[in-house]
Structure formats: C-alpha cells, structure tokens
C-alpha cells in the first residue's frame, strides 16, 4: 500500500469528519469518512499493513480529539482509546474479510458497520475504564450508553455513505498501489 496516499486520505477524511460531513448529521450521530477510508484499506491491503494503517488512523483521531478534563476548560490529548479501538476493529475485520467481495459496495457497507460497531465498543470500553480512575470521559455529564448508541448510529450512517462513495474512491485504486492489486481481478478479498 502506498503509505503517503493513505496518510493524506486519512488526514483529509478526519478533517472533513469534523466539519463538512456534519451536513449528514442525524441527531447526534454523523457518518465517518475516516472509517470508510479505513475499511477500504482493510479490504485491499495486506493484513499486516492494514493493521498498522488502522492504528495510524486511530492515532489521528486521538490526536484531534482533546478531552475536557475539568470544568474550567482544561483539555488533554489522550493517545490510546481510538488507536486501540481501531486496532480491535481491524483485527476482527481482517479475520473475515476473505468472505467479502472487494469491489462490492454492499460488502464495504457491511464491513463499515462491523468496523464502526467494534470501534464504538472499543472506544467506549477504554474511556469507561479510564473514567473509573480519572473521572474524565468524552461524554461529559451524559452516559456511556448514550455515547455507545451514537457510535452505533454512526456505524449505520457510515455504511450508507460508504456504499455511495465506493465507486468514487475506487477510481483512485492505482494510486493506492495495494499489494498484488495488479494480478488479481475483482473478487473475494485475500
């Protein structure tokens, strides 16, 4: 996989997630372009590369998600919750990606649902454990359940968005230089 392309795509996606994508917001949930890009990479890259890419994407989210630690406005950047959750989602996704067809929008949408659900579960779990020690949590005075449900709603919205955007992203497949993409035809992922 071409890492510079992945890094640029991830940065653009995470930047748009915090701004333009909120046009598609339903309630408190909005789809995630970063997860769409991530699942596209997971579906096509080699397993080791895909896992590393997921951790890098999670790191980007962590770095751009400062946590409010005090009512007076103090913030701190915690590296870990999203990184671990993305790694968890990627590991689970890679275990069954052979069953999916790489070029099918439905397969990508299904993958987005599974990946986003696991990311929501992983993130909430890590933050919940952390909040037991420090009291800081991204849901503020709301509940972890609400935070998790928003993550689930995000999974559905991301899947719908991914199904529509796959043909557009797939036009740039040559740039991504996935391993073996020149030899394989569209079909089940390796």
């Amino acid at each position: 996989m071409n890492w510079p392309v992945f890094l640029i795509a991830s940065l653009i996606a995470v930047a748009l997630d915090g701004s333009l994508v909120q046009v598609l917001r339903v309630g408190d949930a909005s789809p995630s372009l970063l997860m769409f890009v991530m699942v596209y990479a997971l579906l096509n890259a080699s397993k080791r590369t895909a896992l590393r890419a997921a951790m890098v994407a999670g790191l980007f989210v962590d770095l751009l998600s400062p946590l409010l630690t005090d009512a007076d406005g103090s913030t701190v950047v915690i590296v870990g919750p999203h990184l671990l959750a993305f790694a968890l989602g990627a590991a689970a996704f890679l275990s069954f990606r052979n069953l999916l067809y790489r070029k099918s929008p439905l397969a990508l949408a299904f993958g987005c649902v599974i990946f986003a659900l696991l990311v929501a579960l992983g993130t909430t779990t890590v933050f919940l454990l952390r909040s037991m020690f420090t009291g800081d949590a991204p849901w503020g005075d709301a509940t972890a359940t609400g935070y998790l449900l928003v993550g689930f709603a995000r999974a559905g919205l991301t899947a719908i968005l991914a199904a529509f955007l796959l043909p557009t992203l797939d036009r740039s497949r040559a740039l991504w230089a996935f391993e073996g993409s020149g030899r394989l035809v569209g079909g089940a992922a390796r």
């Binding site: 940065l11 653009i12 995470v14 930047a15 748009l16 915090g18 701004s19 333009l20 994508v21 980007f60 770095l63 751009l64 400062p66 946590l67 630690t69 701190v76 950047v77 915690i78 590296v79 420090t134 800081d136």
Partner: peptide
Amino acid sequence: SRWLAVWTNPLALVVSIPTAPITHFG
C-alpha cells in the same frame, strides 16, 4: 494523562496544522 500531555498535546497541535484549511473549508 498529565504526564502524557507533555508530548501528546504538542503533537496534536502539529497534526492539526495540515487539517486546519480543510476543516475551515468544510
């Protein structure tokens, strides 16, 4: 987190620089 913040917060500021124009446009 107070110990990690010594390097994570500056690193986050560095990463936020390339994303700033995109978020502004978005």
